[in-house]
Amino acid sequence: MSKSALIIVDMLKDFTDPKGLVYYPQNREVLPRIKRVLEECRKHGLLVIFLQHCYRKDKFDKNLQNMRPNCIEGTDGIEIDPMLEVDPVKDYVIRKRRYSGFVGTDLDMVLRENKIENVIIVGTKTNCCIRATVTDAYNLDYLPIVVSDCVATNDEVVNQVHLTDIKKYLGKVVTSEELFALMDKGEISG
């Protein structure tokens, strides 16, 4: 039985709130399912990690050259959506400035310190931050498990293409119900 962690990618107000700078309705739609996955993972003792996209205010960042400004430190946009409660004692909140949660952060160190082998990934955007984090997790020898009904982007075709590639080349893709069944059978544990 391998130890697992839940990684919640960028479920921040700029992505989830209708007033957010890069809001997509699909992000709001997956929030209740992500909340349920979060609750089940906590019930089964899994480590929980929130990735928080955050750019420095008034500082250059190469990523911002090709996209709309978003997730700027000091704004409400970087706050984790209030539907997903952070346990300040047990959970990790890791800020990132690139699509992958592994680039320029201590995510890999946190996972290794906790002897994690499987990473369950939910959040936004399937074609950018989810895909990049999954690819790096795979390359670092973790087993990525993406929960298909708990990830979103602004185009369902793009979402499905990336889920298909992830399933074929990088890890597992399961529904939340399939994830819960795996946890109940003890195949995924904390």
Rank of each mutant, 00 (worst) to 15 (best):
E117S: 10
R98T: 13
I78D: 02
T75P: 08
L111F: 07
T135F: 04
E79W: 09
V103W: 14
I120C: 02
L111R: 01
V86G: 04
R98L: 13
C129D: 03
S100Y: 12
T124S: 09
D106P: 01
D87R: 14
C129M: 00
P82W: 12
Y99P: 04
N63I: 13
T133N: 04
R131K: 12
C129L: 00
Y138M: 10
N66Q: 13
V103P: 00
D141E: 14
T133A: 07
D106S: 10
N63H: 07
K62L: 14
M67R: 03
Y142H: 02
T105F: 15
T124G: 00
D81W: 12
K62E: 15
R98D: 09
C71R: 01
R97E: 15
M83K: 07
F102P: 02
L64P: 05
V134C: 07
E85C: 06
V119P: 04
F102M: 08
V86H: 10
R112I: 06
G101S: 07
D91C: 04
C71Y: 00
T124P: 00
D106N: 15
D141A: 08
L107Y: 03
R131G: 00
G104Q: 08
Y92S: 05
D76Q: 08
I72P: 03
I94K: 01
V86W: 05
P82D: 13
M67A: 03
N127R: 03
A137T: 13
E117H: 14
R112Y: 00
R112G: 03
S100V: 11
N70R: 08
E113S: 09
G101H: 12
N114D: 03
D141T: 12
Y99I: 02
P69A: 15
K62Y: 15
N114G: 02
V147R: 01
Q65S: 13
L140Q: 12
V103K: 11
N63R: 15
G74A: 07
K62S: 14
E117T: 04
R68P: 07
N139F: 12
P69C: 06
I72A: 01
I80S: 07
L64G: 10
D76L: 09
V146D: 00
N139Q: 07
D81I: 06
R68T: 13
G77P: 02
I78A: 01
E73T: 05
G101K: 06
F102H: 11
V122P: 06
Y138I: 02
N139W: 06
N63Q: 14
K96E: 03
K62G: 00
P82Q: 11
V134R: 00
P144N: 01
A132V: 09
I121V: 15
K90A: 09
R131A: 13
K62A: 13
G104T: 13
D106V: 10
L64I: 14
L107Q: 04
T133S: 14
V89K: 15
M67F: 03
E113C: 06
V89A: 10
Y99S: 10
N70D: 02
K125N: 07
N127V: 01
T126E: 12
I130S: 06
D81P: 04
S100D: 10
V147C: 03
D87T: 06
K125P: 00
K96H: 10
E113I: 06
C129S: 09
K90P: 00
V147M: 04
Y92H: 14
